[in-house]
Simulated assay, not measured.
Amino acid sequence: MQVWGKILGAFFGFLLGGPFGLLLGLFLGHKFDKARSIVYQRRSFAGFGGNQASSAERQAEFFHAGFAVMGHVAKAKGRVTEDEIRVASDIMDRMGLHGESRRQAQNAFRDGKEDGFPLQEILGKVRVGFAGRADLVQFFLELQIQAAFADGSLHPSERQLLHVIARSLGFSERQLEQRLRMQEAAFRFQQGSFNQQQGGFQQAPTKDQLTDAYEVLGVKDTATSQELKRAYRKQMNEHHPDKLAAKGLPPEMMELAKQKTQELQAAYDLIRKEKGFK
């Protein structure tokens, strides 16, 4: 977050014009800070995916873009509330971010909240920079969906913005709506008796939880054992942490991928046990 323009503007404005000068200097300093923030964002992504970018640089850019776009989604309802900030903090906690990496995530989140945030430019560079790595781009989209759904509901303005993000990343409306249904089911699945830390259910699942388990895997509850296996293998292949890491997933985000595979495994095991699949 840029603040020096406000500080200096207010200081010199007060010296030259008293209280009125302070207010004018604060206003001009705010405009200067916003302009600097936009320039910084554009420079940060100027080499996104370029031939000269190292693997570590690409990972850092992906990390920054992920949290910056998350901040932009959080502002979709008009202003960022304490709930949106808590959601972002919860995701950072799930990733195990501390120290410098957490500070970088927080700064990126703030960048996304700024007026004039270059959303389309950044999304275009994510898509081009990771062309041929569809699973990684899908992870980026799912990160935004998880953040939007983390409070248990999806505001119409958030849904509309997610459609913009999905389209810019190369996903169809149908693909996004399917991911939204899967994430909504995953949210309910996690809120049930499924324990993320222990990777299983602590008590007998309900009929609704069984229905959510099918939705988590992206299949109907009428799916055959073969259809279930294919869906499970496909989802595990797309979200496997080692595969995503090989394609450039930042190490700070690996924990989310691990948690997703635990969730997929639990959903698959639940259906197999309840339906008697082998």
Rank of each mutant, 00 (worst) to 15 (best):
F139E: 02
A134H: 03
L217I: 10
V87K: 02
Q175I: 08
R86L: 11
R79S: 13
N107Y: 10
I145G: 02
G29R: 04
L143P: 01
V128N: 08
G25C: 08
L244W: 04
Y214P: 04
R230N: 12
M70Y: 07
G50D: 14
L123C: 10
A257M: 02
R272F: 01
D33I: 00
A131Q: 08
R102T: 08
G78M: 06
R94T: 04
R230D: 15
R188W: 07
V164P: 04
L8Q: 08
S172G: 06
D33K: 07
V3I: 15
A166E: 05
A10I: 06
E173Y: 02
D111Q: 11
I7F: 13
F63L: 09
E82H: 09
F14I: 00
F67Q: 05
R36L: 14
L8T: 12
Q183E: 14
F63I: 04
F12A: 11
K260W: 00
A185L: 01
F63P: 01
G116V: 07
L23H: 05
K243Q: 14
D242C: 01
K77V: 09
D151W: 01
L26E: 07
K75E: 12
A231Q: 05
E121C: 00
A65K: 04
T206S: 15
S172K: 01
Q203L: 11
Q41W: 00
T222V: 08
N107K: 12
H64I: 07
K77W: 04
Y268S: 05
G116N: 01
